[in-house]
């Protein structure tokens, strides 16, 4: 089974990744999002050697805000901005979502000691793609282990 979907979108030219996660409700509150974040930061900085990891949550999503602020602070990152009308909602029929965004640099990550507990499988390197993760497709294909 799987409990959610994590994504790591690489903007190679920008030397930046954008990460996100969605967990099914029964698995909220277990710290999985933060544990996943540490792993993806290790991929970003220890393997891909990129410079910045960014992440954002919808304003009003207090669960995401709490977990995100926790690990962003642990790794010396910062809040970058509060962006109004950042994401369309209902094809433009409803008020757009506001976003709060954060970032962590490679230097922040190293100064914080990195994520030594994370093991990266040398046989299983993530495939580079410029396409954002297709969350719907990933959810539909929910038959993995």
């Amino acid at each position: 089974m799987h409990v959610g979907v994590a994504n790591l979108d690489c903007l190679w030219e920008n030397r930046r990744v954008h990460t996100g996660v969605s967990l099914y409700r029964p698995y909220w509150g277990r710290g999985y999002a933060g544990e996943r974040a540490r792993a993806l930061l290790s991929v970003t900085f220890d393997r891909l050697d990129l410079d910045v990891a960014s992440v954002a949550h919808f304003e009003g999503n207090e669960n995401s805000k709490r977990q995100m602020e926790g690990w962003v602070e642990d790794f010396g990152g910062r809040e970058d901005a509060y962006i109004r009308n950042a994401v369309p909602r209902d094809d433009g029929d409803a008020e757009p979502w506001n976003l709060r965004s954060y970032s962590i640099t490679a230097a922040d990550y190293r100064d914080a000691g990195g994520a030594p507990e994370v093991e990266l499988d040398p046989e299983n390197v993530p495939e580079p793609t410029s396409e954002p993760t297709d969350l719907d497709r990933a959810n539909d294909g929910g038959d993995g282990a």
């Binding site: 030219e13 030397r15 960014s54 970058d80 901005a81 509060y82 109004r84 970032s103």
Partner: peptide, 15 residues
């Protein structure tokens, strides 16, 4: 001013 975004644009190959 709402904030500063890291590595947002690439100019002459530099983020």
């Amino acid at each position: 001013r709402v904030g500063r975004f890291r590595n947002q644009h690439v100019i002459d190959g530099e983020p």
